[in-house]
Each structure stands twice: as structure tokens, then as C-alpha cells.
Simulated assay, not measured.
Amino acid sequence: MKNSSPRKSTALIAYTPFVGFLIAYYINKDEKEPFTTWHIKNMFGLTILFISSLIVQSQISYIVGDILWLLCCIIWLYCWAMAYFSKTKGIPFLSEKFQEWFTFLD
């Protein structure tokens, strides 16, 4: 499925760390493109994972938190690449759960 440039651009904006999904959400609010919405929900879940890794780093174990943070970065790059190549692929299991859990972003 080929996506038009504005839809793809909005999906890529969603992967701007921490605030990108909010910007993309407001851009997509009126159009409600399924491709873009999928990536917004995915990045929202990734943001929660990033924040969780920082909490683990500060409260539980610095090393474990760093490992989780690095893993989040690798996953983020993969998901950004999937948006760039116009695919709705993400983290196995978690991306599908993000789509179910974050229906308020539809």
C-alpha cells in the first residue's frame, strides 16, 4: 500500500521524541488516516517505554535502565524506518497491544 506524502510525513513526525506523537495527533485529528493513527499509537507506547526505562534507571538499577533505554532507541529507529517505508509494522506483540490500548488516540 502506497501512502501519499502528507500521510507519510505525519507518521514520521509522530516519531519525533516525546512530543512528536502529540503534534502528529493534532495534524491527523481531522483527517483520521488509519496509517498515521497506527504510528501515533505506536509512538505513544514507545514514549511510555522510554519513560519507564528512565524510571527503572533512576529508581531500580542504572545498568538495567540503560539497557532498556538502548533497547527503546533501537526499537524507535526500527519503527521510524517502518513509517518511512510506509509499513504498519512495529514491535512484535506490543505494537498490536498499543493499537488496542490507546483507542483514545483514534
Rank of each mutant, 00 (worst) to 15 (best):
I75D: 10
K2Q: 14
F35I: 03
T47A: 07
K89Y: 12
I27H: 02
A11P: 05
C79I: 02
E100Q: 13
F21P: 00
L68T: 01
D66W: 15
F102Q: 01
E33C: 08
T103Y: 13
L71K: 08
L105F: 02
T36Y: 04
F21K: 01
I60Q: 10
T16C: 08
V56D: 02
I48G: 07
M82G: 04
T16M: 14
I13E: 02
K97I: 15
I75A: 10
L12C: 15
S95A: 12
S9N: 15
L105Y: 04
T36D: 03
L94M: 14
E31L: 13
S61N: 12
K32S: 09
K32W: 05
T37A: 07
D30A: 12
A24Q: 06
P92Q: 10
F44S: 02
L94E: 08
K2C: 11
S95E: 07
I27C: 06
N42W: 06
S61K: 07
K32N: 14
Q57V: 02
S52T: 13
N42Y: 06
T103G: 09
A11V: 05
Y84R: 12
G90P: 01
Y26W: 11
I91F: 08
F93Y: 14
S95Q: 06
C79N: 09
L105C: 01
E96Q: 10
F18W: 09
Q59D: 10
A81W: 11
C79G: 00
T88W: 11
G45Y: 01
I55K: 10
Y25W: 07
I60D: 11
K97N: 14
S52P: 05
Y15H: 06
I51R: 04
W76G: 03
Q57A: 08
S95W: 06
Y25C: 03
E100P: 06
G20H: 01
W101E: 07
I48A: 13
A11F: 01
G20Y: 00
I55F: 11
K41I: 06
I51V: 15
E96Y: 09
G65C: 02
S5I: 13
T88H: 07
M1P: 13
I23K: 00
I60S: 07
L12N: 05
L71D: 14
F18A: 09
Y84D: 06
I55D: 11
